[in-house]
């Protein structure tokens, strides 16, 4: 059974935060096409605070996710603060009492995060939101696990589904959030929340895959 210690996986939190900070302009540019162009700014602001708060002290993945959750809920408003804040908080709580992460533990964690976002945002697949990345990603992981694939192969399936889900938002018409005011005019561009979700899931999957391959750096 492929497992990763939560302590070893802790620095993946930093990978995620740095990836979001670096993508600031990219995410804002996507958001500007249909929203108010501040998605990258708000996300980067939140994850910069995460980097400051995590500092140089050692932390495991559960603590890292808890810090992301607290920071987004406490300091980043808008829609993304509560959505991603709840996502990371619930994922962190799903890790309570564990020292390691394996395939089934990851799936349980992802399900908990997804449930928090669905409960709060009430978005469904097809509404052109981050759910169009998150739900197919979780489903792909679940299918792969169901067919007996190992953790690394499940993460690869998740990564592929996240990328496909993001690209699929291009042809959707927004039904929720600020872009929904555009109706048909929202078709033809990616969804900004879906883009940040793909980035977060990809960075998480990449980090875990590296650890599974024994190459954490």
């Amino acid at each position: 059974m492929q497992t990763i210690s939560l302590g070893d996986a802790g620095p993946i939190t930093l990978d995620i935060a740095r990836a979001v900070v670096e993508a600031q302009d990219h995410l804002s540019a996507i958001d500007a096409a249909t929203g108010d162009g501040d998605h990258g700014i708000n996300m980067a602001k939140g994850f910069r605070l995460v980097l400051e708060r995590l500092g140089d002290r050692p932390f495991d993945l559960r603590q890292g996710f808890a810090t992301i959750g607290d920071t987004l809920l406490g300091d980043i408003g808008g829609s993304m603060g509560p959505l991603y804040g709840s996502f990371f908080t619930e994922m962190s709580e799903a890790l309570n009492g564990r020292d390691t992460l394996d395939r089934d533990g990851f799936l349980a964690m992802l399900r908990a995060g997804e449930a928090a976002i669905v409960d709060l945002g009430e978005a469904k697949v097809g509404d052109k939101t981050l759910i169009d990345v998150l739900t197919p990603s979780r489903q792909a992981f679940e299918r792969a696990a169901g067919s007996g694939a190992d953790f690394a192969a499940c993460l690869a399936a998740l990564r592929g589904a996240a990328a496909d889900g993001l690209e699929a938002t291009r042809d959707l018409v927004a039904r929720l959030g600020r872009a929904s005011r555009l109706g048909e005019r929202s078709r033809g561009v990616l969804d900004a929340g879906a883009a940040s979700c793909e980035l977060i899931l990809r960075t998480l999957a990449d980090g875990l895959t590296r650890h599974l391959a024994g190459q954490p750096g």
Partner: peptide, 12 residues
Amino acid sequence: VGEVFASPTAKS
């Protein structure tokens, strides 16, 4: 009070 054009946080 939220950021410019952004909802205040739940904690606010």
